[in-house]
Design a protein around this nucleic acid. Sequence first.
DNA 1: TTACTCATGTAACAAGTTACATGATTTA
DNA 2: TAAATCATGTAACTTGTTACATGAGTAA
Lengths: 172, 172
Amino acid sequence: MNNRQGSLTELEGAILSEIHHRGASTAFKVRKAFQESMSLEWRGSAGAVYPAIRRLTDRGVIDAAETGSGRGTVLLSLTPQGVAVMEDWICDAERAASVGLDPFRLRSGMWDRLPPVRKAEAMAALRRTVEAEIAALRQYVVSLDPIERPRIELAISLQLTRLDWLDGQRAS
Amino acid sequence: MNNRQGSLTELEGAILSEIHHRGASTAFKVRKAFQESMSLEWRGSAGAVYPAIRRLTDRGVIDAAETGSGRGTVLLSLTPQGVAVMEDWICDAERAASVGLDPFRLRSGMWDRLPPVRKAEAMAALRRTVEAEIAALRQYVVSLDPIERPRIELAISLQLTRLDWLDGQRAS
DNA sequence: TTACTCATGTAACAAGTTACATGATTTA
DNA sequence: TAAATCATGTAACTTGTTACATGAGTAA
């Protein structure tokens, strides 16, 4: 989590991308965007977003221009250096290719060790919940812009893989 | 992250499972197991594992029995309540079915917005890295016990899905 | 004028990270 | 006896979380 020279946290990278690609001009709007659409990964908590933007501004990758409006609105944009840093973050193949944190995968070897009845209940509940997630994601995906759509499509693929895996377990 | 009544962090749940299912009897061995085989998700840092075990012991779900050996070895086991708490964690369908944190998915909408040359380079590097990950996982999976194997098989499935997705991008 | 939205942020807390400190026992 | 391994842990730090505080502008 050391934040020196060039490396960004996932949240920081996402914030830069949001500002650059979607022209989200204020911290408030960035937060809103995270809360509404990226809620899969983060909550967009004020206590995370505002400090992150402060860090990025201090590092010179975000330019914060006060508007003098009564609401205290501060317009955010990327400096040229910020664009470079953002692109490096997007193109970091090592990080992009790492498997990440997956609560399903983490538990996947343990369901089989449960008492039989408990296991059967758990698998059934799991299947229902995954199916519900897929339905929700499918309904959600139609309304999305080009940045968000792949994210949700990949989430659907992940859930379908889980469903397949659950089928395989039932067969064995 | 509030840790009251029944709820466990992912690390805490994994620790309980490790102790119960694999009979990992000391904090040291739990750490080792995380470092060696679960490194996909965590580092098994001392600063995470020891405090987590302390929390679980204080909550009465782990029984810590000192052996009086010169090395200060403390044998860990689950209390009956601990087994119940662990099973609840394993069977938590809401959490198991959530998509988790995925650095690939997070970036997936952004590669398309890069300058064409940069994009082509990034996609090529990504493909190479994902393929290397798959090769490494396939080599690794043969040597695993029944708890670990599904985890790695699902990681391979995830990487294959990514590869498919990259193919789809190249086609369009 | 009341309520909602825009807009900023801080404080207390949770739970990871690395790096360090300490010492006993076993193996080469 | 020197090095590796077993075994415990703490300290400083990072970066998330929720909950709270403050206030201006806008729409009912």
